[in-house]
Design a protein around this nucleic acid. Sequence first.
DNA 1: TTGAAAGCGCTACCAA
DNA 2: TTGGTAGCGCTTTCAA
Lengths: 339, 339
Amino acid sequence: MAVRLKDIAQDLGLSVVTVSKVLRDHPDIGEETRKRVLKRAKELNYQPNLAARSLITGRTWTIGLVVPDLLHPFFAQIAKELSAEVRKKGYSLFISSSDEDPALEQQEIAQLVARRVDVLVIASSQWTVEGFRRIEEENIPYILLDRQFAGFESNFVGVDDRAVGLLATRHLIEQGCRRIAHVRGPEISTAVGRLEGYRQALAGAQMTPLPGHIVSIGTSGDHRGERGGYEATVKLLSSPQRPDGIFCFNDPVALGAMRALLDAGLRIPEDVAVVGCGNLSYSDFLRVPLSSVDQGSKKIGKAAAAMALKLAHNKTARRPKKELIPPHLVVRASSLRAS
Amino acid sequence: MAVRLKDIAQDLGLSVVTVSKVLRDHPDIGEETRKRVLKRAKELNYQPNLAARSLITGRTWTIGLVVPDLLHPFFAQIAKELSAEVRKKGYSLFISSSDEDPALEQQEIAQLVARRVDVLVIASSQWTVEGFRRIEEENIPYILLDRQFAGFESNFVGVDDRAVGLLATRHLIEQGCRRIAHVRGPEISTAVGRLEGYRQALAGAQMTPLPGHIVSIGTSGDHRGERGGYEATVKLLSSPQRPDGIFCFNDPVALGAMRALLDAGLRIPEDVAVVGCGNLSYSDFLRVPLSSVDQGSKKIGKAAAAMALKLAHNKTARRPKKELIPPHLVVRASSLRAS
DNA sequence: TTGAAAGCGCTACCAA
DNA sequence: TTGGTAGCGCTTTCAA
């Protein structure tokens, strides 16, 4: 059914090799021949069989992306950007969503490894780095996205999480908050980094977190996000010294926090100011528009694409490279106190 | 580097064919041999070279998905669901985002066709059906998603858009609205269907749209979504008979509409009730929680996956099949009037 | 139950 | 400048 090199070669009385060379812009081909081949190829709408090509070259011109949740705008944005960037260079992108399940993630990675993708980009939900060693064994270059692992050397692209915590907390301090709490995320690098930034900002202003002012959202799926933020904030409100500012691990958590505050009859930002992270769309349309630290997901996507393309071409392994994207703060009503 | 059938065969003193048969669960293989092969394959962590397999079988075990915008939660949800469902059957999903650009979409489709994906799933931004004929020429089965084309026979999975318009408009009528306007979308099947449903609901209540009560959002990228909704609503408000209910093409448009209403000093829903479509996340946290028609994107994803898998297996072309998912209304404050 | 031979469509290598 | 030969890793067919 499909047109092959052989068909073109026979039509033109040439060898398969010659046709192949023309179509790959090989230099030593006569001008006349080249034109005839190109013409016929276009007429027949020739498409090379990529499977056959891969079999020889060992390259598939595909890149694999694994994210915890494609529905999350942060990852969707990255996926979109990555797909667009690599497409320009002739790569196609496999995307899969692991649902924050480490076991499922492993399966997906295994499948992509079996497909011999040229590069793997992973926003991982793992607790250990065992799985990555497997990828290394297969000699497939990979990039960790967003989340990294302490003491583990690897290519990495993500936001500077410490800077996220710093930006958010300094802003709350500047707005006059004096009892700033933090609703932190689970034990992954992003949450740890943001917590560090929070502490550092407080220290810089000769402050320390008050007792009970660092609470964690639950770890079960249900308790993540909005509900986790709600429950954590209820806890915060029962602490002896009520916070007057809260930096939340991310925006869904911040939404939950705001709901808890409003339910408790408190005003935002007059009684308690709130800052989230992620800068999700429609933040402007919320009951109280939410201040948030933007992670620059577009930039992360572009940076990951550039790194992936580089890795795809340099087959020789080199030193892992880390790229930290600087975040920026978007101030809205939830933290803007009249000064 | 990678383990091949040959390696296992040599290790065990068997032929490549025998090993191949074991690993594909071929029946006529001795129990003893089978066990030895499976054991060794596991030890070596054997992964078949899918390119080689495709070369012979003509199947790639890949499916291609093209959407206008991966960032849109509706499409992200579908992509996520589709990826998860087909993965279970051993397929991987190529995803690309066309940015609502018909030319770009054509390029992406061409790339996926060149990769010989087994099935193509497309939420198209085209104005014509020319591009699809090309896919048919290549004998690749495809499914249109969300948007279809009048008078063009093809596989289709999407929401019942007429039902969307009916549900939303009937609800507004039940809430006591008597001057119901519609902010419609561009000239694609979804917008046309919703408009029809709107008209039908009004007709069913012996009502007709008042003059100037059907306005369209702009077509340029900038005017889509929120901004388009804002400007369209400003126009609506200047019409001689001010509407007391608005059914908006989708949720971003509805957000714009609500902003315009609030800016004009009107109350929602007391003065004007609003219903959108899409039921985007966080609708509950908006300044005025937005009533919206849910398109059942999860169901659409599952249905598309089921259809794609069926097409991948039935290589014989059959009659195109259309699958309409019934929508449902989620009522929130923006349309709930005290009765 | 096992395996030898052929070949999928293409590219790498080397000879003409 | 052109092309013959070999072979990528696998499956299909058919004979032993």
